[in-house]
Design a protein around this nucleic acid. Structure first.
Length: 399
RNA sequence: GGGUCAGUGGCCGAGUGGUCAAUGGCAUCAGACUGUAAAUCUGACGGCGGAAGCCUACGGUGGUUCAAAUCCAUCCUGGCCCA
């Protein structure tokens, strides 16, 4: 893998570059659609390519459980399995340790996990995660980490960071001790943790850059902390990261977060929001998010976004999409997903274009002049997440 | 004509003397969703009021009772059975 820095904004930390991988070049800044189960939900590869997707994500934990490694190995890796011939980045399963916390037990460097599907016991370690990602054959492999929750006191964050660093070192050692399985090279990215604590974040950057990785991710953000903290830490961490390596802000975000992150020096982002919200009836436009299920769209025969060139906008009206959503028709979810993915990719594409043409500040300003930034729901989201978790547990217990 | 069962808020449906403006579900109206246990979750949902509260409501009417969606009488409407 090779990262080339092509352009730097004069007044922002934003930058444009390219990442050469075994499956092609990625132009950054880039948004990466999430395809947890070897599918970007509701979209075919053709549709992803029509939206100009350059790279997609897969998930170690989920693909390990289903379809399982035997299948993946027999298929010849994730690219062949899903017939996606462009770059793939796989998450290490670290996020699932956080989001499925009640099903796990951490003992030293081994995590005992109960499958959320059938309750079966599994043992995970940095080594396991690397082996799985070798079998998946992703172009970019993520180290195994712990994503700290929020709120999280300094002492917990410090201990968690120690563990995470140890795991990252083991990940690297194990990764380097094995060869790729399918004849193409794989890159390994580290993940900066440290919760909301500046000192820990700096310590993490220092440790990981001393160790040396192909790229650096920022993890553990957008887990419920206030927005200003998230933006501030993104800026501070990016400022300390080496210029000649790609930076990946994990799990971010809303359109405004994506642009704010790019402005702070982030090259790569991913988020489930465009696909999940599409299925739940929310779509994004240059004038803000719209909730398609609202009564006001019942007779709105304009496209979602008149400027958008996606299939849904070229062919259908808000009224039609409103109808499909309310009928719970599967096409509605597909069209909304096509649109949202197109929008997120177009946002990063335009940001890159502006950077290359030395007009990023204008682009940034124009975007925020027009796009109404959503209220910060970070506090409620903690409660929501907790409620949902409880419901899942109750559902498990009742059968 | 006789018998019998039933009529509950926009719909379906629980409740069978007070804790009932009345469980649920659907529909409706909003909101949320950030490395996907997510085609999911949350809230509102008779009227007026900021609230305490007041008013109107469980087919109609009239009763019993301190108190009725719930008991009694009668009428109306519908299902089923018998003639």
């Amino acid at each position: 893998m090779k990262f080339t820095l092509e352009k730097r904004s004069a007044s922002f930390s934003a930058r444009a570059g390219t990442i050469q991988t075994a499956h092609g070049i990625i132009k950054t800044p880039v948004f990466m659609p999430v395809g947890t189960h070897a599918t970007v939900k509701a979209l075919s590869n053709d549709e992803l390519e029509a939206a100009n997707a350059q790279i997609i994500l897969g998930n170690t934990y989920h693909l390990y459980l289903r379809p399982g490694m035997e299948v993946m190995q027999a298929a010849g890796g994730l690219h062949k399995f899903m017939n996606w011939n462009k770059p793939i980045l796989t998450d290490s399963g670290g996020f699932q340790i956080f989001s499925l916390a009640h099903l796990r037990k951490i003992e030293g460097d081994v995590i005992t996990f109960r499958s959320h599907i059938d309750g079966s016991l599994h043992r995970f370690s940095p080594e396991t995660s690397m082996e799985i990602q070798r079998i998946l054959g992703s172009d970019i492999v993520m180290v195994f980490d712990e994503c700290t929750p929020y709120p999280c006191d300094h002492e917990y964050a410090r201990k968690s960071l120690q563990t995470t660093h140890r795991w990252e070192k083991s990940s690297k050692d194990h990764f380097q001790s094995r060869d790729p399985l399918y004849g193409h090279s794989q890159a390994l990215f580290a993940i900066v943790q440290g919760s909301v604590y500046e000192d820990l974040r700096y310590e993490s950057v220092k440790y990981l850059t001393d160790e040396g990785f192909d790229g650096y991710a920022i993890g553990g953000l957008a887990v419920g902390e206030p927005k200003d903290i998230m933006y501030d830490l993104t800026q501070k961490v990016c400022d300390k990261l080496p210029e000649d390596r790609p930076r990946y802000l994990m799990g971010i975000g809303k359109p405004e977060d994506i642009l704010q992150s790019i402005a702070r020096g982030v090259d790569m982002m991913d988020c489930v929001l465009p696909t999940r919200n599409a299925r739940n009836g929310s779509v994004y436009t240059w004038d803000g998010k719209i909730n398609l299920k609202n009564h006001r769209y019942k007779k709105d025969f304009t496209p979602l976004d008149p400027e958008c060139g996606c299939y849904a906008c070229r062919n259908h009206s808000r009224a039609y999409l409103h109808h499909l959503y309310r009928q719970n028709e599967i096409l509605g979810m597909r069209l909304n997903s096509m649109h949202n993915i197109h929008f997120f990719l177009e946002l990063t594409r335009r940001a890159r274009e502006a950077l290359m043409e030395d007009r990023f500040p204008e682009f940034y300003r124009d975007f925020f002049t027009r796009y109404p930034v959503e209220k910060d729901h970070s506090k409620e989201n903690i409660v929501h997440r907790e409620n949902r978790r409880k419901r899942h547990i109750e559902a498990d217990e009742s059968g």
